[in-house]
Design a protein around this nucleic acid. Structure first.
Lengths: 338, 338
DNA sequence: CTGAAAGCGCTAACAA
DNA sequence: TTGTTAGCGCTTTCAG
């Protein structure tokens, strides 16, 4: 097939490789006549630069890796889209890497760049601690996503989880709720994000002068909607009374919705529900979910900016960027209690 | 940084590059003593082969491109996951390309391989006709996904849309429905998939001895749930009577659900709803959606198989693979009419 | 079974 | 402004 090389073009045009290269790269100082000649040779031969060769010569790949737990989880696929679009805008291609929260796969991710495959990595870790990460990838342009405990050496983009949980809980309080539950997965939490969200939830209660009741902290066994259903069912069965629930994930919120409705409770009249991540799912339940909405576009933009700086040679200490969040208001927890 | 090259290892081990290469590639015939020595040199230096250089030498990139309209649409993100996992299993990495259904972007996709970036492309076209595609990418290992009109030269994986629509409609008929609507986007349909699905729908009605009523074919203005809502609302407003609806997309089905419930109809009692694609969304509505379920894993596997054969040098005519589908039964159109 | 050397196609000094 | 040439790091004949 297209086995046309730079030198073939040069020969046909009767110039040197350098001149062809100049034309390809749109360098300003090429005599118009030559440019013309070269261009038509390129067209005639259908020349396309071989990117692999270019990479070997320049040492830049023009690619970044994006490593996430699951590429088809709505939060990650929505975030991926923003990152992919932002990367494209900046001239990078995106290599997708799925870790499935597997420590081995997470470790493997950090070797891509050493293998000269990508210029940098955007990584949403689940199992690896930040120290391991820094150890495994010294000098690798790397930006972390998600709520990993504060990394010392590594750049990091996240939202303020405490504030977001505080905001979500306050919203429930403002609409008159007084017995607000919190639904999360508690064990196996390496990242500490649940703790931060729990903290925000507790702060809101304290602000409002309400007691912190341990029995209102509900635990799901894993990150599925079914686990959310089970957790709410169990709470209902043991007679727990609550008029609002803050969930650390939209899927839990969906589970909560189902379980509550199945138990004859109406949402939001009897129990208001707040989800987290503001994914596509939140728009299609009934009632639609009020959900904590991380600014995904800002996460993408900020992550790429930090990564580009690292790729550009910045070698300072790890930087933390807190990006915005809001509360997407929908039917499951409307603004005012009716 | 890790600026360790093959030759560095060779020097430390006191052997030639070839021997190191043999060890790296696990070639069988290396003297155990040498292998030992080389291996410890590799470990000591922390050597990692530079993939870019390897590619330039071998001409294989070990990467495939996956080009789809939208990476965060549930159908595509679910399919992507299967493809990514299957590709990993076969030793490929996946470069994600989003076309946003833009003809220019679709065209650009087909140049990746010419640029020596990937070994092959899996492409779900929306705007490009198959002739354009074949013309633009002669000799490029390429597998098409989706319902593009039968391509002559290009490999293609799809489900039998006529049969799937027939099955979905039959299911409604079997449960006693007699006035079944069909909801789709009609104009701007380059791919003809809507036509195939419409055909299946019509066949089912004919089989059942029912008349084909044009007013039962509902049209949404675009591929959003909101468009589905609007289409159903309009039909209801003009007094259309129907007790079932087959939607060509889960999002339409969600829209239909909303519009019907808002109008005081209950699903499935008054109107049964069948969606298409069996995405995550279908599981989280209430009632959950019965949905035509393409075998996404089979699509991924089949596509990779064909692509690998092309990459391996197969140059025959385009092959069509029809993979299986089923009907995921859920509450919006349960098995028997109660 | 191991070593030496010629590319893979492009870029970027350095000359001209 | 344009041409020459030496790499980028690895693979791979072809000898030894």
């Amino acid at each position: 097939m297209a086995r046309v090389r730079l030198i073939d073009v040069a020969e046909l045009a009767g110039v040197s490789m350098k001149t062809v290269s100049n034309v390809v790269h749109n360098y300003p100082h090429v005599a118009p006549a030559l440019r013309q000649k070269v261009q038509s040779a390129i067209n005639e031969l259908g020349y396309r630069p071989n990117l692999t060769a270019r990479r070997l010569a320049t040492g830049k790949t023009g690619m970044i890796a994006l490593a996430m737990p699951e590429i088809d989880h709505p939060y990650f696929s929505e975030l991926s889209r923003h990152i992919a679009e932002e990367a494209t805008r900046r001239g990078y291609r995106v290599l997708i890497e799925q870790t499935l929260s597997d420590p081995v796969a997470e470790r493997a991710v950090l070797r891509d760049r050493e293998a000269g495959l990508v210029d940098g990595v955007i990584f949403h870790p689940v199992r690896m601690g930040t120290l391991d990460i820094a150890k495994l990838a010294p000098g690798t342009p790397l930006v972390l996503l998600g709520e990993a405990a504060m990394p010392v050496m590594t750049d990091h983009v996240m939202i303020d989880n405490v504030a977001a949980a505080l905001g979500g809980t306050r919203h429930l309080l403002n609409s008159g709720r007084r017995r607000i539950a919190f639904l999360a997965v508690m064990d196996g939490d390496i990242t500490g994000s649940t703790n931060q969200r729990l903290l925000g939830y507790q702060q809101a209660l304290i602000e409002a002068g309400l007691p912190l009741r341990p029995d209102l902290v509900l635990t799901a066994r894993d990150f599925t909607a079914e686990a959310g259903v089970a957790a709410i069912e169990a709470a209902l069965e043991r007679g727990l009374h609550f008029d609002g629930v803050v969930c650390r994930d939209d899927k839990f919120a969906i589970g909560a919705l189902k379980a509550l409705q199945a138990a004859g409770k109406s949402v939001p009249e009897d129990v208001a529900v707040v989800g987290w991540d503001d994914t596509l799912l939140a728009r299609y339940t009934s009632p639609a979910l009020t959900s904590v909405a991380p600014d995904k576009l800002a996460i993408a933009t900020e992550a790429l900016t930090l990564l580009e700086e690292r790729i550009g040679g910045y070698e300072g200490v790890g930087r933390h960027r807190i990006v915005g969040h809001s509360l997407a208001m929908r039917g499951s927890a409307p603004r005012l209690r009716e």
